[in-house]
Design a protein around this nucleic acid. Structure first.
Length: 271
DNA sequence: CGAGCAACCTGCATGC
DNA sequence: TGCATGCAGGTTGCTC
């Protein structure tokens, strides 16, 4: 499921229900995720207030009094706010139960997500400390990206999907942003001009912000934290549209595999 | 060091 | 109807 806009949408959706609320129970039905959920998580969390909910890359940070939960939704995860006695569905792995009678329920069919606990600065956690800048901040700018691209022999798609370079650009938005910027995904990162990177940065910011504004792209199983389904697959320009006509010219869109991931582009509009 | 790829899982569409 | 196959939004961590 989640690309950055979906994670941001989830984060904003759950934050008002969690912040300044006390945790009364933690129910773990399936601890085997990408990494095991700490077995003593319940003892660490119960009784504590949740202070703040934020996002770093695709990680959701739930800051409590004595530590911080790191939540990643993987490929197929979602979080919802529900009454704590709401019926349990398949793959509902974890409930964080609150004194309000509601709970944060984490569901993840493929179990590529994770739920970890850290008692130190979460940004210094092993999984977060090497992450690149947030794409929607001024730290993600032309001087930075151009500098990073020099001497990089990989193609530009893998370059912008590398979370050490910049976080939050997943497989869908990589194709979308490169299409909007008119850059072939197979271009070698080090051979692209500064001017073209300036355009690419602008398009990355635009497509991510646009998706956040409408609430997150949904391909299959995104569910908002309120339980309302996401929407607007129809806004995608190229992703999933191989063989269909390009919206900017009369040619058919193409697909190829890059690093085992499907990649969509227009051979006429992108050079 | 970087590049390539195996691994972690289930669900769904497709083809025989 | 059943079974095998391939593919799916992510990321780490292993080899070479």
């Amino acid at each position: 499921m989640p690309e950055l806009p979906e994670v941001e949408t989830s984060c904003r959706g759950i934050a008002p229900h969690l912040e300044q609320q006390q945790v009364t129970d933690v129910i773990i039905r399936q601890a085997k995720l990408r990494w095991p959920i700490p077995t003593d998580l319940k003892h660490k969390l119960v009784g504590q207030n949740i202070l703040h909910v934020s996002r770093r890359g695709k990680y959701i940070l739930i800051q409590a009094e004595s530590g911080c939960l790191l939540l990643h939704l993987g490929m197929s995860g979602n979080v919802r706010i529900l009454p704590s006695d709401a019926p349990i569905l398949k793959h509902d792995h974890v409930d964080i139960v609150l004194a309000t009678g509601k709970c944060l329920r984490f569901n993840d069919p493929r179990r590529f997500g994770c739920l970890l606990w850290t008692t130190t600065n979460p940004h210094q956690h092993k999984l977060l400390r090497r992450l690149g800048p947030e794409p929607l901040t001024d730290d993600f700018n032309i001087d930075y990206l151009f500098q990073q691209s020099r001497h990089k022999k990989i193609n530009v798609k893998q370059f912008i999907m590398n979370s050490q370079i910049v976080v939050g650009i997943g497989n869908i938005y990589a194709s979308e942003a490169l299409f909007s910027a008119g850059i072939l995904p197979t271009r070698v990162a080090s051979s692209i001009s500064k001017a073209r990177y300036a355009k690419l940065i602008m398009e990355i910011k635009k497509v991510l912000q646009h998706s956040i504004d409408i609430g997150g792209t949904t391909l299959r199983d995104f569910v908002n934290s309120d339980g309302k389904p996401g929407y607007f697959k129809q806004q995608l320009q190229v992703y999933g549209r191989a063989g269909q006509v390009c919206h900017h010219c009369d040619n058919n869109l193409k697909m190829l595999q890059i690093n085992k991931r499907s990649t969509f582009f227009c051979h006429h509009c992108q050079t």
